[in-house]
Design a protein around this nucleic acid. Structure first.
Lengths: 252, 252
DNA sequence: TCGAATTTGTGCGTATGTATC
DNA sequence: GGATACATACGCACAAATTCG
């Protein structure tokens, strides 16, 4: 029965009768209108909330929240011209001002990252990677998180040890590596989705429990991984666009 | 309070005290053990179910369902050799038996699909696309849904009007189109994530409210779209892998 | 094969706390 | 401060599915 009530309300939303921000009938209101119990009315609203079509504000009411059309994040074409920041290029193409804050640390890579970077077993507590955490913003609004790891074996003693330091700050991994003679020629991205952690939701100013699209990106120079990153974007704001030509691949 | 109970149970799962397939305490059992009401105990179990850590079987109990390490679905390399079914190739590479069921219909394309296929305005109620709904299985288990649309303008009157009919049944869009002289050379995939609909969760035998990764795939012959598909895979089972070589792209 | 016991799912009613208007 | 609304908790009842002797 609560499913039927939910269907009725959903129909009013999808038909356009109720619009973004409109208030849905209250639990007591629904109950008396439809001659059902408050519990059942509450169950029906919970269905819509779990579907992401509504949000409840305690004390105020339950409100329609239409899924926004997600922006597109291009994950392929810009690699043709690997100069400058891919994120800034993508945002500027959409007329938005890109920015970011970051925080770099030199640490010992955790096991999973060792694996992704094909590092040998850790020696004692030697620091062997630079980890940089980014918060990317579009028009001052935080929209993407990224944590990147670069092995010190590649960059130690060069001018680009720290990603956001020196001449090539903010120009992207590929260009920085090129400047020290490391030619990145392969990329692999592994895309998944999950609920955002409390921490991620807070940094992105999203409601806790939001769905995040995750990307594990790795860059290779030949067979050698030279950078890997965990990228997190809220699924309700972004879709990732991959494209290519048939018959072309990185694994030939 | 139900959140605290959920935390206790979750701890038993993540610590390994409860294993895959083990039965969680029943609602009446929890209620009497912890001196809480059955409703509260039920709420606690619902939390774990919504987190994907448990599944309830009506009449039997609630059982632990550990998140598997997601399988990788390769979305790029096979396009180098566009013959046969990409899904089957991918599953066989992982030692799993691939299969599918399908249902084709000739219909008038809805507005969003018209847009994706660059179709002109609908004329009356003329049927102008073949829509095929697939349920893909790996080792008999449903793992992926796909709905594809092909414009009749391309295939009308040929031997490959129906995707799963005739000589080239089950060999993939690219090979079928090639057989009628349509050379697919570009592909675009738009990846997002959202909660699964009730219908999708049921078809994939997932708990309702599971997170799904969605792909809008389009194939192009030159600038002309010749097929588009909505693909849905459960995020807790699959990660998508894209890869390529730097400096190569479909948009040069 | 049948039936009793158990378990989940759903629904009703009620009460309390707390946030919002 | 008062009215309204959601969130959570309690108790009870019955249907449907499952399990097991």
């Amino acid at each position: 029965m609560y499913l039927q009530v939910a269907d009725q309300l959903r129909a009013k939303i999808t038909s356009g009768e109720l619009r973004e921000g409109d208030r849905l009938p209250s639990v007591p209101g629904l109950a008396s209108d439809l001659r059902i119990s408050r519990s059942t009315a509450s169950e029906a609203l919970k269905v819509l909330i779990s579907e992401g079509l509504a949000v409840a504000r305690s004390g105020a009411g339950t409100f329609v929240r239409l899924p926004r059309e997600p922006q597109r994040l291009i994950r392929a074409w810009y690699r043709a011209r690997p100069y400058g920041s891919p994120f800034r290029q993508d945002m500027e193409r959409q007329g938005r001002a890109a920015g970011w804050t970051y925080d770099s640390q030199t640490i010992q890579a955790p096991p999973e990252i060792r694996n992704r970077l094909a590092l040998t077993e850790a020696e004692g507590d030697t620091e062997d990677v630079v980890r940089t955490h980014y918060v990317f913003t579009a028009d001052e609004e935080p929209v993407m998180l990224s944590t990147s790891w670069e092995p010190l074996a590649t960059t130690r003693g060069t001018a680009v040890v720290l990603p956001e330091d020196g001449m090539l700050a903010g120009r992207g991994v590929v260009e920085r590596m090129l400047s020290i003679g490391v030619v990145i020629d392969d990329w692999v991205e592994e895309v998944g989705a999950r609920l955002g952690t409390a921490d991620e939701c807070e940094q992105l100013k999203h409601a806790s429990g939001s769905i995040m699209v995750t990307i594990q990106r790795s860059y290779y120079a030949g067979k050698q991984p030279v950078e890997t990153a965990d990228i997190v974007v809220p699924a309700d704001r972004f879709a990732l666009v991959y494209s290519g030509k048939m018959g072309r691949t990185g694994e030939e």
